[in-house]
Computed example of a mutant assay.
Amino acid sequence: MRLAERMSRLGTETAFEVLARAKALEAQGREIIHLEIGEPDFDTPAHIKAAAVRALDEGWTHYTPAAGIPALREAIADYIRRTRGIPVGPEHVVVVPGGKPIMFFAILALVEEGDEVIYPNPGFPIYESMIRFVGARPVPLRLRMENEFRVDVEELARLITPRTRMLILNSPANPTGGVLTREDLEAIAELCLKHDLVVLSDEIYSRILYEGEHISIASFPGMLERTIILDGFSKTYAMTGWRLGYGVMPEPLAEAVTRLMINSNSCTAAFTQIAGIAALTGPQDDVDRMVAAFRERREVMVEGLNRLPGFRCLKPKGAFYAFPNIEGTGMSSRELASYLLEEAGVAVLSGTAFGEYGEGFLRLSFANSIENIQKALERIEKALQRLPIRAAAS
């Protein structure tokens, strides 16, 4: 069967490929410590699961409006009003099965073939994949360790051309853990207004923040009308498998995205939407405990990585990933990630899984127990000691 040419432009998410390799090794009897996959290791809070069970018993097993159940859209709008300080209503909200559809639908609805989209690199790989898929030109915006993986606004300004249609932001960021400051966002907003750019603001990690408060670019003057906020339940409420996300956007775009939902998914599962209402309106203690645990693990992970020969790691300000520089080992990112899986039994991701500017880095998730993190660090240290020709490079 001959595939359409556009399929050759579609990328993938390496985390799932590494997970499959790790599972294959486990099937052979190997013990693998999983630091590759980007999901909380906590269970979904009990009151959210209970709400879903009740919903099933009450018959929430049928179609819903394509944009989402009105009560959930109102709960999301209320949450966004409180946390971002912006005036939005349910008419601005579209509920979708996970966060990725908002990336796909926003790019599909707004970006023409031949347009340019600026995206963070290293960054979530699906950004570039979707840009290429629609026939647009992806323009990588390099995030540098020496700048705490924040956007260099002067460099961003140089990348903007008359064909630039959209800018993608991610703060707190995957894979770097970087967080944009208020000053960063204010300067970026000025550029977007000057050049008439639309912003896709991926804020899926907005609640997993270790210092300060989350600031959305949509809260700056003139930006609400040109920003799509992407958020969801996967990370904050440990609901990755529930597939429940949403976008908050100008009403005309919400209507267009709803049409894309009608043409693709029809709607998001009804009972999961009821669970989403319980998540937003119920107790938040489990979220607070999870973030506190991530903060403690972050300390163990970063301190341990900085003791390894050839490793240099900043302390991430958000999300649950460490993104150490490993150039001192003398190995490429892909070589070292493969070596650690095969020789140390530790599954991590090559920085190049997140774009060309991820070379020289690894991503390690600290969504695992402190015991396993410490064990992984010990294994990595021993594995590095078995690389005699690399020691001098550190």
Rank of each mutant, 00 (worst) to 15 (best):
R2I: 12
L3V: 14
R6W: 15
R6V: 14
E13I: 15
T14V: 14
A15C: 12
E17L: 15
A20P: 01
Q28H: 12
G29Q: 07
I33N: 06
H34P: 02
D43N: 09
T44I: 11
A46Y: 11
V53H: 05
D57G: 13
T61A: 13
H62T: 14
A66F: 04
I69D: 08
I69W: 06
P70T: 10
A71E: 15
I80N: 03
R81K: 14
R82Y: 08
T83A: 07
R84D: 02
I86M: 03
P87T: 08
P90Y: 06
V93N: 07
V94T: 03
K100G: 00
F104P: 05
F104W: 14
A106S: 14
D115E: 05
V117Q: 05
I118T: 05
Y119I: 02
Y119V: 01
P122G: 04
Y127W: 13
M130D: 08
V134H: 09
A136P: 09
A136F: 09
P140T: 02
L141I: 06
E146W: 12
F149N: 00
R150N: 05
V151R: 04
E155V: 13
L156D: 04
R158G: 02
R158F: 07
I160K: 00
R163K: 15
T164F: 09
R165D: 05
M166E: 04
P172I: 07
G177S: 09
G178Y: 00
E183C: 01
E186D: 08
E186W: 00
E186I: 02
I188H: 00
L191V: 11
L193M: 11
H195G: 03
L197I: 08
V199Y: 01
V199W: 02
L200Q: 00
I204G: 04
I204E: 01
I204K: 08
I204N: 07
S206C: 11
S216I: 01
I217D: 00
A218K: 07
A218P: 05
P221G: 11
P221K: 10
T227V: 10
G232E: 03
F233W: 11
M239S: 04
T240N: 06
G241D: 11
W242M: 09
E251S: 07
L253G: 03
N263L: 15
N263G: 15
N265S: 14
N265Y: 15
C267W: 11
A270I: 06
A270G: 07
A278Q: 05
A279D: 08
G282I: 05
D285Q: 13
D286A: 06
V291D: 01
V291Y: 02
R295L: 05
R298Y: 05
M301P: 03
V302Q: 07
G304Y: 04
R307Y: 12
P316Y: 06
A319V: 03
P324L: 10
N325A: 13
N325G: 04
I326C: 00
I326V: 12
E327I: 10
E327R: 12
T329C: 06
T329Y: 00
G330Y: 09
R334L: 14
E335Q: 15
L336H: 01
Y339L: 14
L341S: 05
E342L: 13
T352Y: 09
E356V: 14
G358P: 06
G360S: 08
N368E: 15
N372S: 07
I373E: 04
Q374T: 14
K375C: 02
K375I: 07
L377N: 02
E378K: 13
E381Q: 11
K382S: 14
A383P: 06
L384T: 09
Q385T: 09
R386K: 15
L387N: 07
A392P: 01
A393F: 15
S394Q: 11
